[in-house]
Design a binder for these strands. Structure first.
Lengths: 300, 300
DNA sequence: CTTCATATGAAAGTAAGTTTCACTCGTGCC
DNA sequence: GGCACGAGTGAAACTTACTTTCATATGAAG
């Protein structure tokens, strides 16, 4: 299975939040401390950090390995480096994190926009170009593409299907599991099945990918959590990097991140045959032209 | 912002170069290594650094003390932090604008993410908090809310409807013009109709808002163009700030901007009754819990 | 109820960092 | 020239921090 987050450029903190659910309880306690204040963590010795997390040094070491570091000193200097980079103009700090109960509208807007923009940026940062490239190739060569996702991810799935369709690729989106499974059963080698699940634990989505894989199709997963179950049935894993705040279960940030990834894939596929794409796009644009009225001019 | 340990200001490297002449020969050799490549120095153990400088560990410790650090680990993390800070966004400027035909995947990702993040940020910047506040109030007090949008904007409209529904507001989304018009005809004073149209020229969308307004409902438009026709039938106009590139008619950036605005409204409405919202969200989350499987733990 | 895998901390073991101390070498004084 | 002295230094002793190993606890699967 090919991972997208694999290389570790910036965003160790983000990476850790992505791995959070796949960590053991004690490791999660460590992780949370680290995420909450990386600079502080970097200052502590392994024993201090272990005590603060209510666990043993051994667990801290295990945590280091879990997030891809060699040992504690390595983690420490990475954290110090990251912390240094994210020292922001003083008032930006208030913005990250959750929304206070008494927030006014301006604060709400600032916070959401900040989180959303960050999710997009950080997703792009950790996205592996090679994996994307391979996925794009698979998509470009597939006879048929099945896209699947439920709930919020379904919106993104449907969006991708429409995009692909517009540039002349044969793509389907099945909002319903049963039809999706039936369709997946008809895929064959060279075709692509793409499953979108933020948590990576949506059983429907996993089942569909598994089915597709059994038929020999190339399977691609798009999820926020690089070790979630869905990655086990995927040939390629693309990850988003959104840390959801508890408050906003609407999960917009993660959706934006997903859309960004999808858009990258789309543009990648489209770029492989620019001329054909332009033609197809023009045709589809024209088809809705008469549903628009002339833009009115108004005085300011 | 709190600085770590020593109480020394930034610029450790600079400080070291200043101290250079006052150091003993062996310490100077260490200092020069550190200045030449702080990041590399941070990566080495004290023994490695000592060997590289052709000296003993003891001298390295002395060097640490000479420059005001408590010990080697402290120096190490300070160096890592400083090194990180001086790595500057190398090619951020190249990124804006359109995608060249020969772009590789990494470029595509960078460009798209940049544009997407910008769209979100700029939208938030120009969004008027007062208008939002008024819209939020209208939404919070409405007996009924109709959301309308076609095509890509339809996705966003549907998303908003779902969000509102989840927190117990009575909201509808009509994918079809005729039903939408019929529904709008049943709105009355105090209700809200929200129309989403990127261009602001989608006649279907405008017609629905006009209808709603005639019934005395409060009308809200979400568009990218503040002087487009749709604004003439809207009591409140919320604008996004996305500059689409010609190439990407998929219009993802504008969609992200729309979603961000929608999310702000949603959180605004939700914040008015946090307790009730929490309860509703928990209930809806629970309802899908059995569609998820346990997050798998896999060894790294 | 047994078996197995997983998670965890205690303790043993190793490596890294720190201190101590003796040696060298240059300088100034008898 | 020989002697005392102090700065600079590294070897080795020492301490602390990090890592590994192992036994136990816990809980799920058979």
């Amino acid at each position: 299975m090919v991972k997208s987050g694999g290389g570790e450029p910036g965003g160790l903190i983000v990476q850790i939040s992505g791995l959070l659910p796949s960590l053991s309880p004690a490791e999660q306690r460590v992780a949370r401390l680290v995420i909450a204040d990386p600079a502080d963590a970097a200052r502590r010795t392994i024993t201090e950090l272990a005590t603060a997390a209510g666990t043993s040094e051994a667990t801290v070491i295990r945590f280091c390995r879990s997030v891809g570091m060699e040992g504690y000193p390595q983690l420490r200097i990475r954290l110090a480096a990251e912390a240094a980079r994210r020292i922001e103009p003083a008032d930006t700090r208030v913005i990250g994190g959750d929304i206070p109960p008494d927030a006014d509208m301006a604060q709400i807007i600032a916070t959401i926009a900040f989180n959303d923009a960050r999710a997009v940026e950080e997703t792009a940062e950790q996205l592996d170009a090679d994996t994307c490239e391979q996925v794009v190739q698979a998509l470009a060569n597939a006879k048929r593409i099945d896209v699947f996702g439920v709930g919020a991810s379904g919106t993104v799935a449907s969006d991708f299907q429409q995009k692909l369709h517009r540039i002349g690729r044969t793509a389907f989106y099945w909002p319903d599991v049963h039809t999706a499974l039936a369709s997946a059963a008809l895929l064959s080698k060279g075709d692509v099945a793409l499953g979108i699940s933020h948590t990576g634990t949506t059983s429907d989505c996993i089942d569909v990918l598994r089915q597709a894989r059994q038929q020999g199709a190339t399977t691609v997963a798009l999820t926020n959590f690089p070790r979630s179950p869905i990655t086990e049935v995927a040939d390629y894993v693309l990850t988003t990097a959104a840390r959801e705040t508890t408050y906003r279960s609407g999960a917009t940030a993660s959706r934006l991140a997903q859309l960004t990834v999808i858009d990258c894939l789309f543009v990648g596929v489209a770029a492989r045959d620019r001329a054909a794409t332009q033609r197809a796009l023009a045709a589809t644009a024209e088809s809705v032209a008469d549903r628009r009225i002339n833009p009115g001019r108004r005085r300011g």
